[in-house]
């Protein structure tokens, strides 16, 4: 039993990490209609930005801000100079997916000669242990959860209560209509890439902190967990991604305790397959997740 309570603790941190990552990923898809398969690699690039800042003696939490900036800039550039031109050209959904996968390959292999194949890890002051009913978490781990909760609240506030958030929702629902209603969709989309890029950067750092070490090769594993959470919640739905992260995070950590940790992704994948078979539109999906195939 203790094992499972401990697993639940790990689960909460996983949920936090996945939620930050998956919300950014799903917002890119929901608002700009772009399944960005380079997302996992952008996370890794940002994780390494923070790594070098951290190694230079800066506190990892401050390094996280550098990573967020790096993620925002990189994602913005990726869209401005690669995705958006292809979308303007009328490239179809399949073409865009292939392009983002090519971008992922390029990013990973530019990074590799710079940082090498070895794993890296942050210097984190874990702080005192906090215990509660068998749940044992370090202060740093609690801080990750707090960061995630704050970011989710910020996203909620943004989408619900700000003009920009409303413009984002309008653009997601119908970009042409939104433009005709006087919404500067181009600027909105730029903002989406900057904001989701920042989330991606933060996600890269917390993922690196959570998994003890990370390497360029971690990008694919990150991406798969993110896809699972996003699809589970209903792709393009920020709140769906949060729920998806909750389910994937808890279930994978419990299964790691019950079966073996190396099958975490397999469990995530199994959930994904079940969702695709039983409810392909995801738990919260309202639109666009699937087309009538027959």
């Amino acid at each position: 039993m203790e094992l499972y309570v401990a697993a639940l603790g790990f689960g909460l941190i996983s949920v936090s990490v996945i939620a930050i990552a998956a919300v950014g990923f799903t917002m890119q898809f929901g608002i700009t209609n772009m399944i960005n398969l380079a997302y996992g690699e952008v996370m890794i690039v940002c994780a390494y930005v923070a790594f070098y800042v951290n190694r230079a003696g800066v506190n990892v939490w401050a390094a996280m801000i550098a990573a967020a900036l790096a993620g925002a800039v990189l994602s913005f550039l990726l869209n401005r100079f690669l995705y958006a031109p292809f979308q303007r050209k009328g490239t179809n959904l399949i073409g865009m997916v292939i392009i983002s996968l090519a971008a992922s390959l390029i990013l990973a292999n530019i990074l590799l000669p710079i940082v090498g194949y070895d794993t890296s890890s942050y210097q984190v002051d874990q702080g005192p242990l906090l215990r509660w009913n068998g749940l044992v978490l370090t202060t740093a781990q609690i801080a990750i959860i707090v960061v995630a909760v704050l970011l989710m609240l910020a996203i909620h506030g943004l989408l619900r209560y700000t003009r920009l958030g409303k413009a984002m929702r309008a653009t997601a629902a119908n970009p042409i209509l939104a433009r005709n209603c006087g919404i500067p969709t181009q600027r909105v989309i730029d903002m989406v890439w900057l904001l989701t890029g920042a989330l991606c950067g933060v996600a890269g750092v917390v993922a690196g902190m959570n998994s003890e070490n990370f390497a360029v090769a971690s990008g694919a594993a990150y991406l798969i967990t993110i896809i699972a959470a996003a699809v589970l919640g209903g792709a393009g739905q920020p709140y769906g991604a949060m729920i998806g992260a909750l389910i994937i995070g808890i279930v994978t950590e419990l299964s790691a305790a019950a079966i073996a940790p190396e099958y975490k992704e397999v469990v995530a994948f199994t959930i994904l397959v079940l969702v695709m078979v039983l409810r392909p539109q995801g738990l919260l999906a309202k639109r666009g997740a699937l087309a009538a195939a027959g």
Partner: peptide, 24 residues
């Protein structure tokens, strides 16, 4: 699983996920 109901870009990412998972 993949080809019956999913939109084309979903098919692509599902198959990508399968490839990574099968390897692992």
């Amino acid at each position: 699983v993949v080809l019956r109901k999913l939109r084309s870009d979903y098919q692509a990412i599902s198959l990508l996920v399968l490839s990574v998972i099968a390897n692992s």
